[in-house]
Design a protein around this nucleic acid. Structure first.
Length: 548
RNA sequence: GCGCUCGUAGCUCAGUGGAUAGAGCAGAGGACUUCUAAUCCUAAGGUCGCAGGUUCGAAUCCUGCCGGGCGCACCA
């Protein structure tokens, strides 16, 4: 029996009690959940439904809980129901009902944990969106890891996800970049307002190799060829990191294709565009923004914000119900105006646009803060991180904490982390379970078509079964809250539970011991654990190795 | 000044109103003729920033204060 099935049984019982008492059944919630109590004496699962309902129904919580308990106790697979404290229901399951979970997990395989809660939703997930004036650095890397995992989570919840990278290739920064590369090609120092760093010289050299006459062509040529080379590098770094963007969207295309004018017309139709002091404005204050925003400056130039509007409208016209933006905390001021753009376009900001803000990564070296500057060229790149610790450890450490909190990474620790990163604790479960399977195969022991679930009664077996049962709810919550780190934390917990099971419960025969049904049952449990670890790691873009 | 956000163990961080607040790392002690010790076990470590409020119940929600980060362009 899965937690979801038990929760449904609790709700059914409540419906019967409420109906029998002649109370209003519409006061019942549509769904409920059961929780895993921390104390074992509080049972396998607990429900607080009686506490939540009592006030609404105008009855005493404990009385309602007692009636619910009696009703619920008649459910197949439920061994006992106790009322505790102010009105909790503490439920215990039959061994066979608890053990059956291993069967469910193994049978569902890769599908275990997936759901249909976002079925049919077309989601545009924009993240990283780094300027093509430098390599992908540590700050972007956090969004690469988190954004890609979020995409996997949303897909697991049934959504159709398009991963998109927006490239600001239309601004003055590209000109500065071109001047910087040209200067490097001429062996001159970087311009005052330009970019420095080895990568600029590398690009300059590459351009000179491919185009020996480049120096005659001027800075526009260097800007053009240089930023395209930069983009290719960024793409290669991200692919190596396991992050694939379905669409690389160019701001310049937006301008050249007339999308900005089109957006202005659309916004004008909705009645939120006005002229003031020679400039064209969008009245974003109608929808909660602090101040109105300029679309076209009095000198006739379109603002970056105008492109933002066009981009949003373009996404909607491409059929995306939900436009999700993953931005760094230094852009949180954009939330209000982006939401206002959606509203100005006649959309529902609560549904069509979602701006997620993540805190920045703080870098220290041996406790001393390190200021990163692309201009100064002292950045830590994605490639350097991957070289130092590998893709799995890098992705895991960036995705395992909430994006609400500032992540502090010690450069020295990152390289040391290769050994102490919790990802290995989780991956080791994958390796151990695979090893058990290999050994079983060597001994000629097969899992069989089925097993006696009632044999799984050891405390560590039951703990593991319950932990495996939590997975679908964890995935659903992580997807709903857009918080991939929940998956990582769950996996660490599950890994501990598996290691303790492995330590206490021998799976395979030793010496010439005969093969028992318990061993077969444990083999199912072992495979179930491997399935969940692998599914969970996959949501984080981390491998589940067969050996370590 | 206004806005967003964070404040939990020595450090890095979990904990979407539930029962006695957790993990990893660091540090103390123990377990390898191993189904892989990248593991397990034991002990230690806390005014959940402070003060009020809401609630049967608050680390979690509300208000105020203190402290840190970030942002407040006819820049990109």
């Amino acid at each position: 029996m899965t937690p979801a099935e038990l929760a449904a049984a609790v709700l059914d019982a409540a419906r019967r009690v409420v109906t029998a008492r002649g109370l209003d059944p519409t006061l019942l919630p549509e769904t409920t959940t059961v929780a895993r109590p921390r104390q074992p004496e509080h049972g396998d699962y607990a429900s607080n439904l009686a506490l939540q309902l009592a006030k609404k129904l105008g009855v005493k919580p404990v009385d309602l809980a007692r009636e619910l308990a009696d009703e619920l106790a008649r459910t197949d697979g439920v061994k006992s129901v106790e009322v505790a404290g102010p009105g909790f229901l503490n439920v215990r399951l039959d061994a066979a009902a608890a053990g059956a979970l291993a069967r469910i997990v193994v049978q569902q395989g890769r599908a275990y944990g997936r759901s249909e809660t976002l079925a049919g939703e077309k989601v545009n997930l924009e993240f990283v969106s780094a300027n093509p004036t430098g390599p992908i650095h540590l700050g972007h890397t956090r969004w690469a890891a988190v954004g890609d995992s979020l995409g996997r989570l949303l897909s697991a919840a049934g959504a159709i996800v398009t991963r998109e990278h927006y490239t600001n290739d239309a601004g003055a920064q590209i000109e500065r970049f071109g001047r910087s590369v040209l200067a490097a090609a001429r062996k001159e120092p970087a311009p005052e307002d330009g970019y420095a760093g080895e990568y600029i010289t590398d690009i300059a050299n590459k351009i000179l190799e491919a185009h020996p006459d480049a120096l005659d062509k001027g800075e526009e040529f260097f800007a053009e060829v240089g930023h395209k080379a930069m983009l290719a590098e960024m793409r290669a770094s991200l692919e190596r990191f396991g992050v694939h963007f379905d669409v690389w969207f160019s701001e310049r295309d937006l301008h050249n294709g007339g999308a900005v004018e089109h957006a202005l017309e659309e916004l004008r139709k909705q009645g939120h565009v006005f002229d003031h002091e020679g400039a064209v404005w969008l009245r974003t204050t109608d929808f909660g923004d602090d101040k109105d925003r300029v679309l076209i400056r009095s000198n006739g130039e379109k603002t970056y914000f105008a492109a933002d509007c066009a981009y949003y409208i373009n996404k909607r016209e491409r059929g995306f119900d939900r436009c999700v933006y993953l931005l760094g905390a230094d852009h949180h001021g954009y939330i209000a105006r982006l939401r206002a753009v959606a509203a100005c376009a006649g959309d529902d900001p609560a549904r069509n646009i979602e701006v997620l803000i993540g805190q920045l990564v703080n870098l220290v070296r041996a406790g001393e803060p390190v200021r990163l500057s692309k201009r100064a060229g002292n950045i830590i790149t994605l490639d350097e991180i991957v070289d130092a610790v590998g893709v799995d450890a890098a992705r895991y450490s960036l995705a395992r904490s909430s994006t609400d909190s500032v992540l502090t990474l010690d450069i020295e620790e990152i390289t040391r982390q290769a050994r102490e990163n919790p990802v290995y604790y989780v991956q080791y479960v994958a390796a151990r379970t695979a090893s058990v399977s290999r050994n079983a195969a060597d001994l000629g022991i097969t899992r069989g078509d089925d097993f006696d679930a009632a044999l799984l009664v050891h405390e560590k077996e039951l703990d593991l079964l319950k932990a495996l049962g939590d997975f679908p709810a964890i995935v659903a919550t992580a997807a709903e809250l857009r918080e991939p780190h929940r998956v990582a934390r769950y996996l660490e917990d599950l890994a501990g539970t598996y290691h303790r099971f492995y330590d206490k419960c021998r799976i395979l025969p030793q010496g010439d011991e005969p093969v028992t049904e318990l061993m077969r049952a444990r083999l199912w449990l072992n495979d179930a654990a491997r399935t969940v670890i692998a599914n969970g790691l996959d949501l984080l873009g981390v491998t589940a190795p067969e050996r370590m």
